[in-house]
């Protein structure tokens, strides 16, 4: 008979990590990222805590990832360590162990609470090459005026139909310093929920209600992710409580 696997000790420290997906690395899928990240932990010799079982895994809690092809300045995850380690040192070593474009931006020690509960909304920037700002402004107005904007998306469980309007906290065309003549830039704040509404769903909605067709060369970039201030419609910093606790 095979012996039961050894029970692993719980982590002694949890670190919360903000990382960015930039440039060509935006084409990495979440699975691509997680493979690269787990290898980087080995290279960086981060003293990881492992799960129990026949096939122990390093303790990593991922949160909702930006879609493949979307860039992001604000992706978050949490790791469990077997030894106390200086977060600044972990940042330095991890960042050096990841390929350029997958960049560790911040590492803080967890002060408790659940990280994913704080990730209530995201702020996205969407560049629309070939679309003039005026055209975009008109489309956005139509979109916001609608009470419901049903769209369809192919998911792993088949074609799903859902409303993409309710999740939109705010949507506007960025001012002229950002938007250029031939490339409108949208700024959109999306509330996380079920069904999860992504910025490409909002584009599908714009096409649906306003005929705004941006083509395939659209660029999505997540700029912030965190607690939603319902009054102001802004996205806060999810690591602020941990940082303040130090």
């Amino acid at each position: 008979m095979r012996e039961q696997p050894e029970q692993q000790a719980p982590p002694v420290q949890r670190l919360r990590i903000r990382y960015a997906k930039r440039d060509r690395m935006r084409f990495a899928s979440h699975r691509d990222f997680s493979r690269a990240f787990e290898r980087a932990l080995v290279r960086a010799r981060v003293p990881m805590a492992y799960s129990s079982g026949f096939n122990p895994h390093p303790r990593i809690s991922y949160t909702g990832a930006a879609p493949t092809g979307a860039a992001s300045e604000a992706e978050y995850l949490e790791i469990g360590l077997a030894q106390h380690t200086d977060p600044v040192e972990v940042l330095r070593r991890l960042d050096a162990s990841l390929p350029p474009g997958l960049d560790v931006v911040e590492v803080v020690a967890s002060a408790g609470g659940t990280l994913s509960d704080r990730l209530q909304a995201s702020r996205w920037r969407v560049s629309l090459p070939g679309i003039a700002p005026d055209e975009a402004v008109a489309g956005v107005r139509t979109f916001l005026a609608a009470a419901e904007v049903p769209v369809e998306r192919m998911t792993k469980r088949g074609l799903r139909s859902f409303d993409c309007r309710a999740a939109v906290v705010s949507l506007q065309v960025a001012d002229t310093r950002l938007s250029q003549e031939s490339c409108a830039i949208l700024e959109v704040v999306l509330r996380h929920g079920t069904p999860s509404v992504r910025p490409d769903d909002v584009l599908a909605g714009l096409r649906e209600v306003a005929g705004l067709d941006a083509g395939p060369a659209v660029l999505f970039q997540r700029q912030a992710q965190g607690p939603l201030d319902e009054q102001a419609g802004t996205v806060g910093d999810p690591l602020a409580p941990d940082r303040d606790a130090v």
């Binding site: 060509r24 084409f27 090459p129 395939p216 060369a217 659209v218």
Partner: peptide
């Protein structure tokens, strides 16, 4: 050719295989 390649990558399967930048 990156500037011409980048806009078409969302149209293909597993675009990561064409971008390089490996460790």
């Amino acid at each position: 050719l990156w500037d011409r390649l980048e806009p078409v990558l969302p149209r293909v399967q597993k675009p990561i295989q064409y971008v390089g930048g490996e460790l």
